[in-house]
Amino acid sequence: MNNILEISHLNKRYEEFLLQNVSFSVPQGYIMGFIGPNGAGKTTTIKSILGMVYPDSGTVKILGSEISSENTEIKDDIGVVMDLPFYVDEWKIKDVEAAVSPFYSRWNSKVFADFVRKFGLIQNKKVKELSRGMKVKLMLAIALSHEAKLLILDEPTSGLDPVARDELMDILRDYMLDETKGILFSTHITSDLEKIADYITFIINGKIVFTGQKDKLLESYFLVKGGISDLNSLQKKLIIGYREHSAGFEGMIKAENIGMLPENIIFEKISLDEIIIYMNKEGTSHE
């Protein structure tokens, strides 16, 4: 299987933050969800991919070619959507097209016009006059109009209502009908990924704690609930993010450890959100 994006051993030191040995890959034909709490290092990783920050060490390869400040040809194959638009506020939509289209070797005006129409954008409107959802759609229209092979989405849904989010998901599904494409989808709203993502990379405090198939991640943990007296101290140690309250305890457990707990404990299917919450609790409680 070919990787459309390959990040290996990325390190970046800031005064108050450290990106540590970040490695993961997006296989061609699939959607990689990139999750983690705010400030975990998602944006720094994406900025490294785009060459906006220089990592202290490590490499980023897109379709096999390594990216650097002077090797930017490969960006012809990338479409980027961020939570906020990066166009001049006063630009009209046609100005945005005029500004970016000369840089792409496969720019297709007709495709762009179709997206503009489909998304309900109006050519004569200024960027600043667009709603949050419309701004995201504008970035998406640009990203989809030059035959990009890799889409990089950084928190695209953070300001969107459920309807706009659902529309975005539909567009991404359409895009993925072509198996040569790939998406890196960074978000802290995991419900977006719960269904659509094939793979998940999970980052906490600048370190990757999981990267692999989403189904495997969701199968490898369970939610546990029970009475405080149900567990002995050894069993308690198996619980990730163990938390006691007046009427019992709750936490997360690895699937392989289920057999070690007494039978009266309740196990439930876990969600990505819950995994983040418990992993994060565990991460901070060790510090």
């Binding site: 699939y30 998901m169 599904r173 993925m176 993502a197 094939d198 989403k214 189904d215």
Partner: peptide, 9 residues
């Protein structure tokens, strides 16, 4: 996958 809104995998 697209029609059922689920992942390809």
């Amino acid at each position: 996958a697209k029609d059922l809104k689920i992942s390809v995998i």
